[in-house]
């Protein structure tokens, strides 16, 4: 028998951290976009924006947004890129990247996203999009640092998507 008994007192349960699992890519995402695969009827005047036009300079002290990007704030823009596997199953946003993402839990955690990415917000919803083929996103451009409360994902450049479809090559 033990010399000392340590009494187990009731303590508050340990807090559960709401950490999402990266790499938990889901096969289908449900965007209820109208006529997703219908012929594109892009908004007239949507400003085409390329990944390499977003920044003026990049250094260890941060990124300077380009004049073109800033001039398009609040405007409707169209971008082509790749949809990264979503960070969470409840899809109210995804990340648009210049090249398709390969997710490696040890070398590409959420902390290691490339810096030239665009967060695409989704108001509406449905249908699946491939992660390995280019997609085209159209919507209003938003700028400024924001954090997604659920995932901790920090974004600077966002598009509030009104139309998404596979890019035609």
């Amino acid at each position: 028998m033990l010399k000392t008994h340590i009494t187990m007192r009731e303590a508050a349960p340990w807090p559960l951290l709401s950490k999402y699992k990266i790499g938990q890519a889901i096969l289908l995402i449900f965007l209820s976009l109208n006529r997703l695969h219908a012929p594109a009827a892009w908004a007239a005047g949507a400003g085409a924006l390329q990944f390499n036009e977003m920044y003026d300079s990049v250094s260890s002290l941060g990124i300077t947004l380009s004049d073109k990007l800033k001039s398009l704030e609040g405007e409707v823009v169209a971008m082509e890129g790749f949809m990264a596997p979503p960070l969470k199953p409840t899809l109210d946003f995804f990340v648009l990247t210049r090249v398709p993402m390969s997710i490696c839990p040890f070398c590409s955690s959420d902390a290691n996203w490339p810096y030239d990415i665009v967060m695409v917000r989704l108001d509406k919803s449905v249908t699946s999009l491939p992660f390995d083929r280019p997609i085209r996103v159209e919507g209003r451009l938003e700028l400024g640092s924001e954090i997604d409360e659920e995932t901790g994902f920090v974004s600077v450049v966002r598009i509030r998507a009104t139309r998404i479809q596979e890019a035609r090559k």
């Binding site: 033990l2 010399k3 000392t4 008994h5 340590i6 009494t7 187990m8 009731e10 340990w14």
Partner: peptide, 29 residues
């Protein structure tokens, strides 16, 4: 399982006495 007592001996001595300090105790379920 919900333990009603747990304890630790270090080389036969009570751990609190061995280290000269009291442990932090937690219980949850």
């Amino acid at each position: 399982a919900s333990a009603n007592e747990i304890g630790l001996l270090i080389d036969g001595r009570d751990a609190s006495e061995f280290f000269g300090k009291e442990p932090v105790v937690k219980k949850s379920g």
